[in-house]
């Protein structure tokens, strides 16, 4: 076969119309929501329900956030150096020059 028969028809199929959502779950003893993965859903409400079915089946969570992936602004790998490298050599920004008492947790 020389023709590319598998080329998807534009705009066809539910996958092309269901937007992508990112899922954040807070565990029972967790203090904050943690990114656990993504899913497709037709709308926000169904995204929440799909997240419940996909990511909390094993008793993982007590709270779920879903966010349309399109609403997330992410740093780009191209900007890695200007974004993150400058903080790599500034050791004085860490509280490493203090003596830490033995009984202080979670520092």
């Amino acid at each position: 076969m020389t023709e590319r028969a598998s080329e998807p028809a534009a705009g066809r199929g539910p996958r092309s119309s269901w937007p992508l959502y990112e899922v954040f779950v807070r565990g029972k003893r967790g203090l904050n929501h943690v990114h656990v993965g993504s899913l497709h859903a037709p709308d926000d409400e169904m995204a929440l329900r799909n997240a419940r079915d996909l990511y909390t089946r094993r008793n993982e969570g007590v709270s779920i956030w879903v966010v349309p992936a399109a609403a997330i602004t992410a740093s780009s790998p191209d900007e890695k150096d200007p974004f993150f490298a400058p903080s790599g050599d500034k050791v004085y920004r860490h509280p490493t020059f203090y003596a830490i008492p033995e009984d202080v947790p979670h520092l």
Binding site: P14, L39, H40, D53, L54
Partner: peptide, 8 residues
């Protein structure tokens, strides 16, 4: 119809 619905 969808993987998500399959699991549901």
């Amino acid at each position: 119809p969808e993987l998500e619905e399959d699991v549901a």
